[in-house]
Design a protein around this nucleic acid. Structure first.
Length: 417
RNA sequence: GGAGGGAUGACUGAGCGGCCGAAAGUGCUCGCCUGCUAAGCGAGUAGGGGGUGUUGAGCCUCCUCGAGGGUUCAAAUCCCUCUCCCUCCGCCA
């Protein structure tokens, strides 16, 4: 949720929202509704002030004077009762409108949409296409079975089998141990959450159609462990000395992928269910941009540690999503497609999420909203598929990346099929 | 699933419908005292919104005692719903 006060007073703040391509007029609607709300609020508060004073007087008055005072106070009560519903209405209007406003883009963020994102740097060089693309290779080697998964669950599901399953576990182990070494608290959160949790995490109402509903709408399957991790300190005031507070969450992620018919239908590039290790940081507002650099550096060291060629993209304002003030994606070279595809993503939400969650920092008696950040440490399935192409040998074998060998127990899988 | 008990400030823990945003203690901050430390003495110490002012001094006010409704001139205190926690019974990993 945005800061209404800043929206009223800072042109730069408003500009950042406009750059996200919100519906023209929405900002003015919000401001008008907010004016109305504050006007009514002042009125109601003045009435309450009089009523509070009247009630106090009754308490102190001798019994014989009370009936007259009570009658007068009752009149005030009626006046209030007439006005309060109007205030409630105005408040409801403001909050439903304000939830539609995205977090302003940071001034450094490039203007425009998807095509306008800026490549910050490239590491490693593009490679030629392998004999088999990731989907074919995974199937031939028996690492992935999407056909049988389709029979029992539908399209966009997969079995990971044999070394494919072991590679997944190895990746998780390796990445988690990296995070622990960096001071992250390892976390395996619930993947079913309440509606209110989805709202506070900022995924509802915007992304509701991407989420699976369970138990008659009581619970929802998370699309990322960011959701339960962001709720971990709701309504809490953290001590500034404890920041940054970093969590490395491992969970299965569930996504409906509505509106992606026909896109990325091969293999496990885009599936309804996958496992992911996610980094989530609570940072001091003063240092959250440094924290973002830290998260990005960790992501790079993981992708780089696997020997994958990649580039870093500074996502343009129109493509940031509602919550991020700035976002860097790491795109990895996918040889079979001869182009870079997104593997990880790292965002600074500033106080946008914390405002709704009520998570604050206390620093010398001063309390402020924390900043929250998240970054993908490892989207396991998608990482595997990049490995299938980059570690496929000319003879059709698969070689395990060095860093994973301590966790797999094997170094090479001979050709099959 | 059945039966009870509970939720109060950073923490522990009082609280008769009005004198309670809230006793007391702990912790923390400042000051005094004191070779050092500890102890002692004094003072201060919740959050959020709005207005005004300044620009991060202040002043006024509203809201908040798990959440949301209700009763009342007045609710931490009474009633209802929900959430969570604890104990017991049953059931099941």
């Amino acid at each position: 949720m945005i800061d209404l006060r800043r929206l009223r007073t800072e042109p730069e703040y408003r500009r950042g929202i406009e750059r996200k391509r919100v519906r023209p007029g929405l900002i003015d609607e919000v401001l008008e509704a907010d004016d109305e709300r504050r006007r009514l609020q002042t009125e109601v508060q003045k009435l309450r002030e009089r009523q509070n004073a009247a009630s106090k007087r009754i308490g102190k008055a001798p019994p014989d004077e009370r009936p007259a005072l009570i009658e007068a106070a009752a009149a005030l009560k009626e006046e209030l009762a007439a006005l309060e519903p109007r205030l409630a209405e105005a408040e409801a209007r403001v909050s439903s409108l304000v939830l539609q406003l995205p977090n302003p883009a940071d001034p450094r963020v490039p203007d425009g949409g998807e095509e306008d994102s800026v490549v910050l740097r490239e590491v490693g060089a593009p490679t030629p296409a392998p004999a088999l693309d990731h989907a074919t290779f995974g199937a031939v080697m028996g690492f992935v079975d999407t056909e049988r998964a389709a029979e029992i669950s539908g399209s966009r599901f997969a079995y990971l089998l044999r070394e494919g399953a072991l590679l997944e576990l190895a990746l998780v182990q390796w990445v988690m141990s990296r995070l622990v070494a960096e001071g992250f608290t390892p976390a395996i959160p619930p993947v079913l959450v309440r509606e209110s949790t989805m709202e506070e995490a900022g995924f509802f109402p915007t992304d509701r159609n991407q989420v699976y509903e369970v138990d008659g709408g009581e619970l929802f399957l998370v699309g990322t462990s960011e959701v339960p991790l962001s709720g971990l300190h709701r309504r809490e005031t953290l001590d500034a000395s404890a920041l940054p507070l970093r969590y490395g969450g491992f969970s299965t992620c569930f996504r409906r992928e509505a509106g992606t018919y026909g896109k990325d239908t091969r293999g496990i590039f885009r599936v309804h269910q996958f496992d992911k290790v996610e980094m989530f940081s609570y940072a001091d507002p003063e240092h959250s941009w440094d924290e973002m650099d830290t998260l990005l550096a960790i992501e790079e060291s993981i992708v780089g540690g696997l020997g994958l060629p990649y580039r870093i993209v500074d996502i343009a304002a129109g493509d940031l999503g509602p919550a991020a003030a700035r976002k860097f994606d790491i795109e990895v070279w996918l040889p079979s497609e001869q182009r870079y595809r997104e593997l990880t993503s790292c965002s600074n939400y500033l106080d946008y999420s914390a405002r709704r969650l009520g998570t604050r920092v206390r620093d010398d008696g001063d309390t402020r909203l924390v900043h929250t950040l998240n970054g993908t440490a490892c989207a396991v399935g998608r990482t595997l598929l990049f490995l299938f192409e980059h570690y496929q040998q000319p003879d059709g074998a698969f070689v395990v990346p060095d860093v994973l060998r301590p966790y797999t127990g094997f170094e090479r899988v001979e050709p099959r099929g």
